[in-house]
Write a protein that binds this DNA or RNA. Structure first.
Lengths: 331, 331
DNA sequence: TTGAAAGCGCTACCAC
DNA sequence: GTGGTAGCGCTTTCAA
């Protein structure tokens, strides 16, 4: 089914059919009806590829996330998407599983698709890709990686502040033996998180002991990391997780091994995903405003007619949310 | 950046560049190098729209799900995707939030994109859309809706069997007052689920009492439904949830109101999403093999050279998984 | 208000 | 091995 067939059936030119279907230009009402009728009878579906190829302007935004199973990313996606849809955009998501190789594929695909803008909410960005994106001229939003440039907007979370607040709180509750549970330490931003933990611990040097464990970004990963932690001789009174998703698994493992949270061991997360409230016990966590991030991302990507499109940087200062999974250290 | 510019820079024709980039046809090694070099220097990204428009054959599969926040759907997506990627396909997801209007948009978009196949894992399918898809000739997989046709494959779960097994189990544990928590009863398949519960209850008429509550498909929705349940005069000893995602919220609300699960009230889910194991208490649920469903969907969509593409129907008989959230009814 | 035709960027077929 | 070129299906001037 092509435009031409519809035109033929309606007894008009393809130009007219195009006008009718796109509601552009004026068309006599009777003609319009005839065209619509023909299109319906033929079950015509315009070829989007031909459309964008001919039209040039894309109203598609792209978004790439590291882990589509982690609700954190889905929340940002939904927020960005709802802002986008409101303005007549559509957004396509891809995910990388934290693999650089997949990221390259995704970015290429997005660029090939000629997206109007791209949000890269990923941890595994490498310099050459950043350069490629910068030079592509396409509006891009990075989360936690990259530097601002004319077409690049950055959103970054002051992770160290969140970490610091968590540790201070835990310290004030008497905790002196802490463990950090993370994932993918080989990736820049995640490596940085672990480092931040270690540096923060450094401030209490002599007063606190600590260790770290790594696994995959999932509840199962958290469970496994906790398992390793408990298998070692180091017995933490508090476990700080790089995110809520893993914390869910940590709590599970602790419980399986007979520990009570928070009576025996306190656990904290990061992100404040919805599930953190539904966890039992409800998770003490650090709030990261996902909705706001999605909105910021959209604003940075949508053509900003008013202001010049200078590079921007958004910085988020996350706050600690104390709930049920933390308490005083056991004696 | 276009193919032509690359060709000019490399001093060859566009045909040659195309051959090099697609690894199709033979090209002298030196020429190849030169082309690649030019492409790199120009930071050339082939226009995917032009490509598919010219090439005709699409290796993109589409998938539409009702609720992208519910891990159940993500699991199926990931399974389908990994099978697809292995065979050189890519898959794009869209979600509808259970809204028929959005479903229409999504289907149109997929058809416009000329996907090679479409998996509609949704509950809000209406007859006219089904007809549209059937007549489009595109290979389609429906989950829980629609009838087999030459290009339509159906995957259906014997929901009633799962429900029945759950009720039998609960009954055997002494439960005589049960409640069903669901969502979107206006949509066919979900309406059917509720009806199945009611019919199953009918078999025990006189012996058991029951009620139902509806909310949205999320932990928050489950929490709210549970809240309404407890606000009424009806006090169930067991709450059967339409899925695990909502059950998470139900458990939370029960706990918030001081009930112990399963001592005071038993709770069951459906789907056996990963999180159901990480719930506290771990959820008694009915397993639905998401991985298998994704694989089946892919097989049904991928061009099947061997067998003729006769319509197919896969039927899944789900089994009960007893974990910690259920127990004997309180006296 | 409508039609003719020139592309959009690429693939594929046919010559050379 | 390589180049020329006819489309793929649509939008968009430019004329009529």
């Amino acid at each position: 089914m092509t435009l031409e067939e519809v035109a033929r059936r309606a007894g008009v030119s393809t130009a007219t059919v195009s006008r009718v279907l796109n509601k552009t230009g004026v068309v006599r009402e009777t003609t319009r009806k005839r065209v619509l009728q023909a299109a319906r009878e033929l079950r015509y579906h315009p070829n989007l590829h031909a459309r964008t190829l001919a039209g040039a302007k894309s109203n598609t935004l792209g978004m790439i996330v590291s882990n589509i199973e982690n609700p954190f990313f889905i929340d940002i996606f939904r927020s960005l998407e709802s802002a986008a849809i409101q303005k007549g955009y559509e957004v396509v998501v891809e995910h990388t599983d934290y693999k650089s190789s997949r990221l390259v594929t995704c970015v290429r695909a997005m660029l090939g698709r000629r997206v109007a803008g791209l949000a890269a909410i990923v941890s595994e960005m490498d310099p050459s890709l950043i350069e490629e994106l910068t030079e592509s001229g396409v509006p891009v939003v990075f989360y936690d990686v990259g530097l601002p440039a004319r077409n690049i907007t950055n959103i970054r979370v002051r992770y160290e502040r969140g970490m610091q607040r968590t540790v201070e709180y835990l310290y004030s509750m008497g905790h002196r033996r802490m463990a950090f549970v993370g994932h993918h330490a080989s990736l820049g931003p995640l490596q940085a998180r672990k480092k931040t933990f270690i540096e923060t611990m450094g401030r209490y040097s002599g007063q606190v002991q600590f260790t770290t464990a790594l696994s995959t970004d999932s509840p199962a990963g958290g469970k496994q990391a906790a398992h390793e932690l408990l298998a070692s001789e180091f017995r933490p009174t508090a476990v700080l997780c790089v995110n809520d998703f893993m914390a869910l698994g940590v709590i599970r493992e602790l419980r399986d091994q007979g520990f009570l949270v928070p009576r025996d061991i306190s656990v904290t997360g990061f992100d404040n995903i919805q599930l953190s409230e539904f966890s039992n016990p409800a998770l003490t966590t650090v709030n990261i405003p996902r909705r706001k991030i999605g909105q910021m991302a959209f604003e940075a990507l949508a053509p900003k007619e008013s202001s010049g499109d200078r590079p921007r940087e958004f910085v988020i200062d996350p706050e600690l949310l104390v709930r049920e999974s933390t308490g005083p250290a056991p004696l």
